[in-house]
Design a protein around this nucleic acid. Structure first.
Lengths: 332, 332
DNA sequence: CGTCAAATTGGTAGCGCTGCCAAAAAACCT
DNA sequence: AGGTTTTTTGGCAGCGCTACCAATTTGACG
């Protein structure tokens, strides 16, 4: 099960080879504390000669804080999370932090288990999606003493740091936009909302706003699986089978919206004159469509970046609202 | 910069609270060695009561092998890599391994630097994309003694374990398919090939096969940026501006192909009668298009899974060919 | 019961590094 | 030169855990 240990070079060996003390080598390598230029050269030469690679496991154990940042994310299929990781990892790498991750499949129980496993690495911070965590997770995270960053949601109380935007506001603005455009018979196609609570928040605010606007949601189609182009296409097909006279459809995601768009193309349904389509996320793909997708662009990469910056800077607890941008597009 | 150390509970404290020795606690927690059921209960109760979270940093340092697996990947924007991570992380989590990653942006120099940083964590394995590594990387990896897994390529000599398929074969089959369908004036739209060497391999085999078939590539358009829908659309537009009478276009990726498809939709170019489109990767999106995309489906998730399984099982050096599947689709 | 093997348990030496402290060397003053 | 600073160094005690070994308890059996 375990591996053969490589003939590993230790700091002590470097020290001996360079003819200096261990702490001197340590200081030179971390460029911390003082040492002469000559010593530095000798040490570096020995490092080079022996092919020494410092052992950060040992280093972390000996020193106080770790430079690991743990991501506990719901999914890697939903492009949102790779985007967040991308933004974060760039910042973390610059600052010599190391990203660790695991995937919960939108299962809060699994989140708790994985968060526990992560804490065993004593990370500097744990990054999670949104505010919905089990009591066990919250207790454990609180007790851990490491920074907690909740991403991509701002509708709730942050445990420590939160970076993102309001999903409720996104749902609201989407609805307001469709109403303003004059659509009155509006439907919804979405993926599993129990698991993706952020999509659930968007949807409920969307519905409320429609009601306030006097044009309550006419029909909805919620598919069991994850957000995908195929589900979007299938969902719209089913929705229209039940409610033929819709004039606009709100999708839980751009993926889904693109699927809906494909369905319309295939069926010859004119967009937006016969049916309007509105998405969420602002993927690049939406810009390249023959008719640019009407959607809300979310700051996914920036969310990762800012979150990482706050962790690196050990910033005080705060909630950072990065907002979002409504893209009028040509499909609604 | 560093954090306050949480009031952390140690194994010694658990041992005292449970009234047993440290090694007993350790054995119980790892379920390794022998201990009585009664002891087990006492220990678990103490763990529960104190909220003890084992410190894997210390555990890893004290024991021989680590349970970290390091991924050094070119990008998170290209869906290929999140897919590989997804496959791998599922297997790793099951086996209580932890995934660590960093992103090279297709830069071999950065790969070397990041691989070095990774080795400092003494991972059980390092997973890399493909075979093109700097001499420095190779030397360092070899010397590290940890397992090396090269992913998504099989055209070359593996350092240790390789899991994937032949990109050359993929390029070859794509060309053969187009020739078989009777296309003779074929063009190519791709993204930066110097960086994405696997795309480069596909392209060069594609061209060779076309030549052998008596219908050499007519024109190509290579865009500087990454693979994206927008670049695909733009690329096809440019390509057609220079070579109006193409009858088929091979794209470096499905993203790019989808962009090309959108261009044709927007311009009213009939597919495939006027122009055929062929992609690469077999993304789900291709299946949902009004005309399913003709492409090659690659085993991305499986690549991650198999790679992780081999590492967990500490399998002997080997190259695993997972193959790929040509999807005829309706666009070529 | 005594004997011997098997099952449990505790003590303790590190794993490789960093942080602290005191010693040594170098630099700077009168 | 002698006395002070200041800079550079080395020694060494842990960080929290696991691995090894020896000690103890238990169980089985004649």
């Amino acid at each position: 099960m375990e591996l053969k240990q490589p003939a590993t070079v230790t700091l002590a060996e470097v020290a001996e080879a360079a003819g200096v003390g261990e702490s001197t080598v340590s200081r030179v390598l971390r460029n911390h504390g003082s040492f002469s230029g000559k010593t530095r050269e000798r040490v570096m030469a020995a490092v080079e000669r022996l092919g020494y690679v410092p052992n950060r496991i040992a280093g972390t154990l000996a020193s106080t804080g770790s430079r690991l940042v743990a991501f506990v994310i719901p999914s890697l299929s939903n492009i949102v999370f790779p985007d967040v990781l991308r933004g974060a990892s760039a910042v973390l790498e610059e600052n010599r932090y190391q990203a660790v991750f695991s995937v919960t499949d939108y299962d809060p129980g699994k989140e708790e288990a994985l968060a526990a496993a992560m804490l065993a690495w004593r990370p500097a911070a744990v990054m999670l999606a949104g505010y919905e965590h089990t009591d066990g997770s919250v207790k454990m995270l609180r007790a851990s003493g490491c920074r907690i960053v909740e991403l991509l949601d701002l509708d709730g109380d942050a445990l420590d740091i939160a970076v993102g935007f309001s999903n409720r506001a996104a749902g609201r603005e989407s609805a307001a936009f469709l109403l303003k455009r004059g659509y009155r018979r509006i439907g919804y196609v979405g993926h599993d909302l129990n698991r993706d609570t952020r999509a659930g928040k968007r949807f409920s605010s969307f519905c409320e706003t429609l009601e306030t606007g006097g044009a309550p949601l006419v029909a909805r189609e919620i598919l069991a699986g994850a957000s995908s182009v195929e589900n979007g296409r299938l969902g719209l097909e089913r929705l229209l089978a039940r409610a033929r006279d819709l004039d606009a459809v709100y999708f839980s995601n751009d993926d889904m919206a693109l699927g809906g768009y494909f369905h319309c193309l295939a069926e010859g349904i004119a967009i937006p004159s016969k049916l309007a389509i509105f998405g969420y996320n602002g993927l690049d793909i939406g810009r390249a469509m023959p008719q640019p997708l009407s959607t809300i662009r979310t700051p996914r990469v920036a969310t990762g970046q800012i979150a990482a910056q706050l962790v690196v800077a050990n910033a005080p607890p705060q909630a950072v609202d990065l907002g979002f941008e409504l893209i009028e597009g040509a499909t609604a």
